[in-house]
Computed example of a mutant assay.
Amino acid sequence: MTLPSRVKLVDVGPRDGLQNEKQAVPATVKIELVHRLQAAGLKEIEVTSFVSPKWVPQMADNAEVMAGIQRQAGVRYSVLTPNMQGYQAAVHSKPDEIVVFAAASEAFSQKNINCSIEESIQRFAPVVEAARAAGIYVRGAMSCVVGCPYEGEVAPLQVGRLAQLMKSIGVQHVGVADTIGVGTPLKVKAAMEATLQHYDVNDVSGHFHDTYGQALSNTLASLELGVWQFDTSVAGLGGCPYAKGATGNVATEDVVYMLHGMGIDTGIDLDKLVDAGAFISDFLQRKSGSRVATAILNKRLG
């Protein structure tokens, strides 16, 4: 078994992490967070989403945030675009990548976006086509790959079917997401293997929530399959509005600490990353969701 020697992390904190925050987070704070993440060495950052402010008021400042970022060469800035309207609004802000999403669970799709999986894919087809014609990279997020709050267990067969549908409309890369954090290593491996039947290992990433404390184990299980790209969230920000009690994405700091301890390169400066997490946690007036950040900050206090 050979583990990847290098891993790329996509920090989804500014978008996935902050979207459900009840208190308003000003654009200036979001921009500062992006700047701190890129200063820490992150090469891909999911910045915002172009969704209706009626549904996600926290992201109403999407264009302002994108315009305010001092872009760095070699960093990819991605945005979520749920439909053609969102894509058309996003294009003006010149994202390097757009993200479309669909669920592996029929029930989740109905509850989340009021349509079937097939319908959601048809809805994205013109978005994918337009983005690729404009030279914008397209990433697909596949949610609920091991479990759904409404349907329970999700079979690997359903995950494979969704990956195939994503491939059929031209999605270039897919993220295998355990949205409610119920996955354990063998289940996550099965979902990954189902995806790898349709996508090359270089075009697949893992996205694990830490609801049951399994995210690092699930990351390791994916690394063992050769997967070398993962979504993480600084300070463990985020949750899922459709999954009661689902905690945030796995903390970027925790994944970086684990990878560095395994001799796997990330290009990320852990101390600067901890500072970025402390910055946003201080603003939100709560403790970081990262165990590693907590340990390092306590150690600094001596």
Score class of each variant (00 low, 15 high):
residue 204 V to N: 07
residue 138 V to Y: 13
residue 123 R to V: 03
residue 27 A to C: 13
residue 162 L to H: 00
residue 161 R to S: 05
residue 159 V to I: 07
residue 218 N to Y: 10
residue 30 K to P: 01
residue 119 E to N: 09
residue 158 Q to V: 00
residue 276 A to Y: 03
residue 237 L to Q: 03
residue 141 A to P: 01
residue 48 T to W: 05
residue 297 L to W: 11
residue 185 P to T: 12
residue 145 V to H: 01
residue 101 F to I: 15
residue 32 E to Q: 09
residue 134 A to R: 15
residue 124 F to S: 03
residue 247 T to H: 11
residue 248 G to E: 12
residue 80 L to R: 07
residue 55 W to G: 01
residue 109 S to R: 14
residue 291 R to S: 09
residue 286 R to A: 07
residue 273 L to V: 05
residue 81 T to L: 05
residue 163 A to T: 02
residue 49 S to P: 03
residue 128 V to Y: 08
residue 192 M to Y: 06
residue 58 Q to F: 14
residue 248 G to K: 00
residue 94 K to M: 15
residue 212 Y to P: 04
residue 233 S to F: 11
residue 282 D to R: 06
residue 109 S to A: 13
residue 126 P to V: 02
residue 179 T to D: 15
residue 5 S to C: 00
residue 4 P to A: 14
residue 226 G to R: 10
residue 111 K to V: 11
residue 20 N to K: 04
residue 180 I to K: 10
residue 111 K to H: 14
residue 229 Q to L: 13
residue 264 I to N: 06
residue 26 P to F: 12
residue 170 G to Q: 06
residue 245 G to D: 07
residue 254 D to M: 04
residue 289 G to S: 00
residue 118 E to I: 13
residue 147 G to H: 13
residue 82 P to Q: 11
residue 133 A to F: 10
residue 183 G to W: 06
residue 52 S to P: 10
residue 235 A to N: 10
residue 218 N to L: 11
residue 230 F to K: 10
residue 75 V to W: 05
residue 26 P to W: 06
residue 186 L to H: 15
residue 124 F to A: 10
residue 298 N to E: 15
residue 164 Q to H: 15
residue 269 D to W: 14
residue 105 S to Y: 08
residue 21 E to S: 04
residue 187 K to F: 13
residue 223 L to D: 08
residue 145 V to G: 14
residue 209 H to G: 04
residue 149 P to R: 14
residue 264 I to R: 14
residue 19 Q to V: 04
residue 34 V to I: 00
residue 32 E to L: 00
residue 94 K to L: 13
residue 210 D to K: 02
residue 105 S to I: 12
residue 277 G to F: 12
residue 26 P to Q: 15
residue 52 S to L: 15
residue 96 D to M: 05
residue 58 Q to I: 08
residue 243 A to W: 00
residue 130 A to R: 12
residue 292 V to F: 02
residue 153 E to V: 04
residue 69 I to H: 02
residue 280 I to V: 08
residue 221 A to H: 03
residue 61 D to G: 13
residue 283 F to R: 05
residue 254 D to P: 07
residue 285 Q to T: 15
residue 42 L to G: 01
residue 186 L to I: 11
residue 19 Q to Y: 13
residue 108 F to W: 08
residue 244 K to Y: 06
residue 219 T to C: 14
residue 44 E to D: 02
residue 266 T to D: 06
residue 54 K to M: 07
residue 33 L to K: 04
residue 133 A to R: 07
residue 292 V to P: 01
residue 12 V to T: 13
residue 23 Q to P: 14
residue 57 P to E: 15
residue 207 H to Y: 10
residue 182 V to M: 00
residue 226 G to D: 05
residue 248 G to N: 02
residue 297 L to Q: 13
residue 233 S to R: 12
residue 132 R to E: 01
residue 284 L to P: 07
residue 34 V to E: 08
residue 142 M to S: 08
residue 104 A to Y: 11
residue 118 E to G: 09
residue 174 V to T: 06
residue 268 I to A: 09
residue 276 A to D: 03
